[in-house]
Amino acid sequence: MPDSKKDIIARLQQNILRWEGFVPPPASEAKGIGLGPLEAAFPNGVFPTGAMHEMLCPTLEGTAATGGLLGGILSSLMQKGGTCLWIGSGRKLFPHGMTAFNIEPHRIVFVDLPREKDILWATEEALKCEGLAAVVAEVKDISFALSRRLQLAVEHSKITGFLLRSDMRKLSTTTCVARWQVTSVPSQLPQGMPGVGHPRWQAELLRVRNGTPGSWEIEWVDGKFVTVEEQMAKVVYMETRIAG
């Protein structure tokens, strides 16, 4: 029976994904990292580990929110006993605060480097080093060529890398697999309850390579992510996407 046009296109799409390095994971590991519906935005419906993600954190509060979401992601990446390397210059992350996201803070190694150039060098070296669970680098800006170097390192070692970018003035294109922006949103508690509720964020995927960008409201409850409105991602219109 001849394949229908749809089948052929699906197969070709799979091939393209494979050539680009998105290998569908084996069935035993297809659990994802607990981000729920958000993961459907990625190719094959799986959060891409062994790739670079960039996260925009222009403000202090944005950095905190990103740190929270990242903490949740790292906790599942570090579950098997790996170590995380956190490279930056003026780091404000409070290690003790990571306990809220099920991370043992002493398993994170912090590297403080004074110069941007050194941070990028150290990040590339770290991404080449097999045996790490994840590498987080705080950078101001990154050029396309540099991001390609990081991507090459990651493809070889299969480490998940996160770039926290703080300079929003020139958002150049990078080879990163996804561009995130996380902002805090007011927490919700049952009617009439005092106090501050669970941390809640608006996680926006501004661009996803071979996936569908979107926006989700996520809450961190009792050690796992809960998507607030269990609904499929609304496609973000082109106007709201930051050009680059």
Binding site: P105, H106, F110, D112
Partner: peptide
Amino acid sequence: RMANKIVAANICRYLP
């Protein structure tokens, strides 16, 4: 390698 290449590098972990 990092500590030897970059003299000003501050590499540490945090313990409670």
